[in-house]
């Protein structure tokens, strides 16, 4: 069984935000008006964490794209009372929107605050509701959503590979953020496949994971020479 994982090279990342935009488009993530967004209710599956270092005039911005970490030992799935979120045998932490009752326990349990809640009816830019991605359902008000590693893309590539009677190739299944990244900072693949780019990068001396001491085993690795 594969174990899908992502490696984000912070030394390559320019912080352009293309991954955030691609993710919003790919996954029909609703737009929240600016007042609500200020109150912390913005919906992002791929978020960008910015921290500033130093004093003016020598200020450096550290940018860190943050998807769902798809933990191998996820705390969110353990608190869900209706099994709307669970870890499947390929290591994807799924969120089944039509099962979610909106209790937000999982949001409280997630140490990385990657889950977001639909507080209001989704709003769209004019005409945007005519160009939804048909492969992803549009979430209703009152459910929790999060990055799925573009699991709908996996459904498609699996179907094609099954029909052609061959195993999945490395790099065949990639999420939208990884595909769009102009700096090639986001790699994606199978950790169980020792020839995959992700396997090699995850063993790099630069690799680390966020809050490793929690023991939730995130499957998103960050590469950086800078010691944070």
């Amino acid at each position: 069984m594969p174990r899908w994982a992502m490696v984000i090279d912070l030394d390559k990342c320019t912080g352009c935000g293309a991954c955030m935009a691609a993710c919003k488009m790919e996954n029909n993530v609703a737009i929240v008006d600016s007042k609500e967004a200020q109150a912390g209710r913005a919906l992002f599956w791929m978020d960008m964490i910015t921290t500033y270092e130093g004093e003016y005039p020598t200020v450096a911005a550290k940018r860190m794209p943050k998807p769902c970490f798809q933990c191998d030992n996820p705390p969110c799935t353990k608190v869900c009372p209706v099994r709307a979120t669970y870890r499947n045998n390929e290591g994807l932490v799924a969120q089944i929107y039509h099962r979610c009752i909106g209790c937000r326990y999982c949001m409280a349990a997630c140490p990385f605050t990657t889950k977001v809640f639909n507080w209001y009816e989704p709003q769209w830019l004019e005409g945007a509701n005519k160009c939804f991605n048909p492969d992803v359902s549009v979430r209703a008000v009152g459910v929790v959503e999060k990055c799925s590693f573009c699991a709908h893309r996996l459904q498609h590539v699996k179907e094609v590979a099954d029909l052609e009677k061959r195993p999945l190739q490395d790099g065949e299944y990639v999420p939208a953020c990884s595909e769009i990244c102009p700096a090639d900072a986001i790699s994606f693949g199978d950790l169980e496949n020792k020839d995959s780019a992700v396997y090699k990068l995850s063993r790099s001396y630069r690799a680390s994971r966020v809050m490793e001491d929690l023991g939730v085993e995130p499957k998103v690795y960050y590469l950086s020479k800078r010691v944070s």
């Binding site: 499947n88 994807l92 799924a94 089944i96 039509h98 459904q155």
Partner: peptide, 8 residues
């Protein structure tokens, strides 16, 4: 019968 096999 994994949820993610059909649900999206």
């Amino acid at each position: 019968n994994d949820c993610l096999a059909c649900h999206r």
